[in-house]
Nucleic acid binder design. Structure first.
Length: 488
RNA sequence: GGCGGUAUCGUCUAGGGGACUAGGACGGAGCCCUCUCAAGGCUCAAACACGGGUUCGAAUCCCGUUACCGCUACCA
């Protein structure tokens, strides 16, 4: 059996990259871009690479880089190979820029940024479109040499040839830009640092990226980049431009819209798998009515055919609903380790205490998760079962213990019926209480609701018999006693 | 302004010339279940931006218009 990778015509495995700038936290738009790149790579058996675009020294921070790693790790979007730091490749970017000059694809431009600004302003005042007029490209050779010899600073500008640049975008189909609309752009500044498009193309070539998948705000950068690939003699990769994510008001998602960092959602008790599922559906659909998916299912179903061209609005409500779905379907064994730290952080218990009674703990979470949409919801509901004393919710008292004397009497009867039950199981307790209700000719609910307040202090909880069992005989009976004392 | 992109219920979307009286989901309204709250089940309201073509036939193809978004730097 020949090794397929050894044959020269073996298909190239796709190589994709996620290339965030470390200028803040990992936001949901970036997370979705990462997800789509990751899904494509995993689906095709390709590679998913990570590049930190830290060339903007002023805005890049180490904390942001860490936040990106942590966000990606939390989501489970693992990357292949070493992380590439763009800043480390500055020398190559410069060499590639100079290669352009040497090859005659670019020229020296002695116009200063100030002069350019002036001309741009003047053109604008005349209501004309400003485009660099190539004056430096028309400088006589000896003039250029004289200026260089004199140490005059210059930028390196790419000479855009005539023609049209077009490509088949994986999400948009064919996109074309007439070259006349692309001005001769700077690739190396006068301080010899590379400009964004130069650095990106240089790195993507070096990383052997075959598919550039990114936000569609980069569509107009693409023709310039294609020009650079060609001038550098490199293969042009494929492109896939994903739609933006907007806030509820239809504008580009920003801090104004509240939580935009994936860490925010982590803090709200959203599960990574739900976050991923939700993000996947923002701009992609597997077709048909499929909505709830696990990560492996997404990997299997993912394809460029389902990619959307229109910007999507981020709807936190649907995210929460989806999280509830994932909360319910996730194996308890996976859920528990995520709930425990939240419970501990809330000061309701300790990890050791929970570990001491694993079955009880599992039963508790299993009961609570049905009516929770986030892990934080579970935490909010867990207090009556984890803490020794409870507080009575004033509204619950007002509603269910309207007549204290009558309520106390009812509780007393319930207490006796429960205490007399031969076993402390949901079934036995239920028949005990229902028999009591029947003997008194009252609706069972008239018994259950006041009892619920006595047991939990609240008007809402899991089924009353489950609560009774969860609390255990001693604790349940003593809480009823306490409620009776409170009422008298 | 120039260039590019986009346009199906409030939102996410299915749809890729006839199967569309346009389907699903979130959210909303209501009903059922029921010890509360959830979950679940059922029902209802809710959309093809507009105008021209092409075609026997258009949500689907083409062209305009409009609206929205992006880019337009020696930012990334």
């Amino acid at each position: 059996m020949p090794d397929p990778s050894a044959t020269s015509d073996a298909p190239v495995r796709p190589r994709l990259r996620f290339a965030p700038s470390p200028t803040g936290y990992l936001h949901v738009g970036g997370a979705r871009t990462a997800l789509f790149n990751w899904l494509y790579a995993r689906h095709t058996g390709g590679q998913f690479l990570l590049r930190i675009e830290d060339t903007d020294r002023a805005r890049s921070t180490e904390a942001s880089t860490r936040a990106i790693f942590e966000g990606l790790q939390w989501l489970g979007l693992t990357w292949d190979e070493e992380v590439v730091y763009q800043g480390a490749n500055l020398e190559r970017h410069r060499r590639d820029g100079e290669r352009l000059l040497a090859a005659g694809a670019a020229y020296r431009c002695f116009c200063t940024p100030e002069e350019l600004d002036e001309r741009r302003a003047a053109a604008e005042a005349r209501r004309e479109t400003f485009r660099y007029d190539r004056r430096c490209d028309r400088l006589p050779v000896d003039d250029v040499e004289r200026r260089v010899a004199a140490g005059m600073p210059y930028a390196i500008r790419f000479r855009v040839p005539a023609g049209t640049i077009e490509w088949d975008d994986l999400v948009h189909g064919r996109i074309a830009f007439p070259n006349k609309d692309i001005e001769d752009f700077v690739v190396l500044r006068s301080d010899a640092t590379p400009v964004y498009n130069m650095a990106v193309v240089s790195d993507d070539i070096a990383m052997r990226v075959t598919l550039v998948m990114r936000g569609d705000d980069h569509i107009s950068n693409t023709p310039k980049q294609i020009l650079l690939y060609r001038a550098l003699g490199a293969d042009v990769p494929g492109f896939a431009h994903l739609p933006m994510i907007h806030g509820t008001d239809g504008k580009k998602l920003s801090k104004r819209h509240g939580a935009t960092a994936v860490a925010d959602y982590q803090g709200q008790g959203i599960l990574p798998t739900a976050m991923l599922n939700f993000l996947a559906l923002l701009g992609w659909s597997p077709g048909g009515d499929r909505e709830i998916m696990t990560l492996p299912e997404m990997v299997e179903l993912f394809g460029p055919g389902g990619l959307q061209r229109k910007a999507a609005v981020f709807d936190p409500q649907k995210l929460e609903w989806m999280n509830g779905q994932h909360l319910s379907m996730m194996p308890l064994g996976e859920l528990l380790p995520r709930v425990t730290p939240a419970l501990v952080r809330a000061g309701l218990t300790t990890a050791d205490a929970l570990a001491a009674q694993p079955e009880w703990y599992a039963a508790l979470v299993d009961l609570l998760r049905v009516r929770a949409r986030t892990i934080n919801d579970i935490v909010r509901q867990a207090e009556p079962y984890l803490c020794e004393t409870i507080t009575y919710d004033p509204e619950a008292v007002a509603k269910q213990w309207k007549d204290p004397a009558a309520s106390a009497a009812l509780l007393e009867a319930s207490r006796d019926a429960l205490a007399a039950s031969p076993s402390w199981t949901p079934e036995a307790l239920e028949s005990a209480l229902r028999a009591l209700a029947e003997s008194r000719a009252i609706a069972a609910g008239k018994l259950f609701q006041p009892l619920r307040v006595a047991l939990t202090g609240l008007t809402v909880s899991p089924g009353i018999f489950d609560v009774l069992v969860l609390l255990g005989r001693d604790r349940a009976l003593s809480r009823i006693d306490a409620a009776i004392r409170h009422l008298r």
